[in-house]
Computed example of a mutant assay.
Amino acid sequence: MNPLLRAEQAVLGAVLLDPDQLTRLGWLAPEHFYRPVHRALFAAMRTLHTADHPAVSAEGMVPLSWVIDTVAEASRHVRGLTAPYAHSLVTACPRSGHAPLYGRMVLEGAIHRTVTEHAVGLHQAARADALRGDVEEALHQADVLTGVLGDLARRWGTEPHPLAPTTPPAIAVSEPLHLRADEVAEDERFLLAVLTDQSGAMNEVAGWLRPTDFADPAHAQLYRSLGALHHRGEPIDRMTLLWEAQRRGLLANGTLTAEQLAGICDGVGAGSAEWLGERIMRSSLTRTAAVSAQAIRALAENEALAPGRLIGHALHALGPLDDARTRWQTANGIPAPTPTPPPAPTAGNSPPARVHAALARSTPQPSAQSTQRLGALPAVTAARTSSRTPI
């Protein structure tokens, strides 16, 4: 059986044996369980615990009604759940006092699974925006993914900070995002012609458009050459651009051909550099979102990567998209949002979930010995321990 499913069974069995274990699992949520029946059972336990089920305050033996009522509550949301399955969860739990560690295993699997799902969603949104010539859905999905990473980091017990991987993730070969490629290439050629032909046109885009925003590497190198002329304050025209391209070896190394350069320099130079630059920026943003999504998915599918490092690497992979968004907002005159500081802890309140998670993983919790568990399972419980024993 999958180790993650065994961990889900173990944490549920621990709470069936000892409802008080829920107080040590406040950072674990029903949606962190993979199987729907397990999500329903954990949600039912939390509901009964919040409603002060008699088992919560029972001294010594845990009443059998705790198991019966848990199954009844969960059965309202899933089908096929039976009492024998609940008993099998009890037998799957080696030690009820180890519930936080079992919960950590469940949370670790949920983090990898959740990050993968949202990375797929970001990639799909980027493809849809590329087809529409839009960016809104990709930016929204990126915000959702950032928020999810922050929540998962706090539950795991770490701070959500970008962390560069020592080696780039091995991205699986997938379909490249070359939607509307002919239209994008035409926009790039048109913009380069405008920047070459119109005096001062570079002033309209130099502050936010970068060579990496061009899909065609040759176009990117030409824009870099134009940027160098602009930075040095030298005049820009067909001759100076040709000279700068030759100085950079673009013709000698095959990056550009004389025909390509002539086609751009002799093209129609009438148009708005700012408008064309915004179109190129849109396509660049969706490509960047797709690349970031693929990198994050590759990270999440690496089961050997610890959750804390996965979250940090995923936030780092979103960095290029954040930079593209900032430049997109500059191009459109959109003010950057003011970052909202995290709420300060209030004196007297319980520690945040991050502290609970960290303590649950690092502080040993001894469990009391018992001699009997559920009355229906005497043969399999003699070698196990529990802090509280149901009857």
Rank of each mutant, 00 (worst) to 15 (best):
V115Y: 05
A44G: 12
H77F: 12
V56C: 15
C93L: 08
L89E: 11
P100W: 00
A86L: 06
S57C: 07
R35H: 14
H53Q: 09
L25G: 04
V67Y: 03
L25P: 06
V90E: 13
G80P: 09
H53T: 07
P19D: 10
I68D: 14
I111A: 10
D52Q: 13
V71P: 02
R35T: 08
A92P: 12
P100Y: 01
R76D: 06
L28N: 00
L107W: 03
V71N: 01
D20H: 13
S96Q: 04
L89D: 10
L64S: 12
A72D: 14
M45Q: 15
P63M: 05
R113N: 08
R95K: 10
V115Q: 05
V115L: 10
V78D: 10
P63H: 05
T50E: 15
A92E: 11
L22Q: 10
S88T: 14
R95H: 14
A92N: 09
P100E: 00
S65L: 09
P36D: 06
G26I: 08
R95D: 15
F42I: 09
A72E: 14
H87C: 03
A72K: 13
H49F: 15
L101A: 13
P63C: 05
L101H: 11
S96V: 06
S88Q: 15
T116R: 14
I68H: 12
P100L: 03
R76C: 09
P94W: 07
S88Y: 10
C93G: 06
P30M: 07
G80T: 06
M105I: 01
L81D: 10
R24T: 02
